[in-house]
């Protein structure tokens, strides 16, 4: 699939606020976003304050859906 080139000159990763409190540091700074790490792509919910992962869900597709791979 083809994607449009971003219109903004500089691109930022969107972090979606998530509800809850970090069990490690008790801060309410949880955000949901994708990361690339050992094992590939993950959808994570992480604490902005201490970087603890409250959720790490493997995402085999990642950022790009390849049309021919969906056949």
């Amino acid at each position: 699939m083809a994607y449009d080139r971003p219109t903004e000159l500089l691109v930022n990763q969107e972090r979606v606020p998530a509800k809850g409190k970090c069990p490690e540091c008790s801060e309410e700074q949880l955000f949901s976003y994708p990361v690339l790490s050992e094992g590939g792509w993950f959808k994570v919910v992480k604490c902005r304050h201490c970087l603890a992962s409250l959720k790490r869900e493997s995402d085999p597709v990642g950022q790009i859906t390849i049309f021919s791979a969906t056949i």
């Binding site: 083809a2 080139r5 691109v11 990763q13 950022q63 390849i66």
Partner: peptide, 24 residues
């Protein structure tokens, strides 16, 4: 090895020069 990545999360927004999207 792949284990080198274990404690490193790369955050990379789609559509940058380092994360180009098809059909670039």
């Amino acid at each position: 090895t792949s284990g080198t990545y274990r404690n490193i999360d790369l955050v990379i927004p789609p559509g940058t020069i380092s994360s180009a999207m098809p059909d670039a």
